[in-house]
Amino acid sequence: MKPPKIHTWQIGVLLLLMAGMITLSMSGYLSEMLGGATGPLVSLQSWVSSRFVRIYTFVTASSDVIGLVQQNEALEREVANLQKQVIEMEEDLREAQLYYALLDFARSKPDNQYIAALVIGKDPSPFMNYVILDHGSSDGVRMGMPVITEKGLVGRVDAVTANAARVQLVNSPDFAVNVQTQNTNAEGVVTGSITGALVMDMVIQTMTLQPGDLVLTSGLGGNFPSNLLIGEVRTVTRQENALFQSASVQSAVDFRQLEVVLIIRNFQPVEIDPLIPQEGS
């Protein structure tokens, strides 16, 4: 096939047309002409594009929801783990604070030697208030040793096995300790009760007892060191015709929350029974 022959005049016409177009474009007349022609095209493309974007969003969103659900589950698991860690750390912190308080107390009284022990149980009989510790005679615990916390007197060791010890609490009904008040030096005896309340009794009528007085061990009887805090006087009962006055005492130690205690190992209770005269002798 023979290619069409291009004449010189045709080339000239083309060049003239191109030059005319360029001139029109540079002068700004062409854009107005093209604007009228391209406007509908641009509008059409915008419509198609917006519909495409909507459809694309709709299709891809469903897969994103599944991804979000999975991500949400993973985050929930992570949150649960973190909450568990927070609870564990708070528990550790609470224990650490407890140990620091006991340590501070032990350092403040360097004359005493202590054995720290955990409370691992309570006497099953509800009539008596005794607790069981996780240290026994193999750790140096002996019968009669005083047991304290940083807040005050807890009780005394009542029975010991190789690896455990039973402690008679201050609020047990069969407990009694000689005490005196801090400010007025009123002497008496603190006893426990089945309800766990402490009573300071045997205080002679001439002594002054006031609510708020601190009650400390007096050391009389030799069962406990002196000046161990027991509690605070709450209410005083005084009757004119009675020999003694009494008072209810708010214990310094919360016996329901006992976890860690200190046993004073270098205090030996004094056995005074042989010194008490027997009847008829």
């Binding site: 009989s125 509800p126 009539f127 008596m128 009904p173 069969d174 006893t191 089945i194 309800t195």
Partner: peptide
């Protein structure tokens, strides 16, 4: 519990009020 009360009260001579022991324990 009555047996234990009697034992503590009369053998160990622990001052346990009967009324409170019954109601509270």
């Amino acid at each position: 519990q009555s047996l234990f009360y009697g034992f503590y009260r009369f053998v160990y001579t622990v001052p346990l009020p009967l009324n409170e022991s019954f109601l509270y324990i």
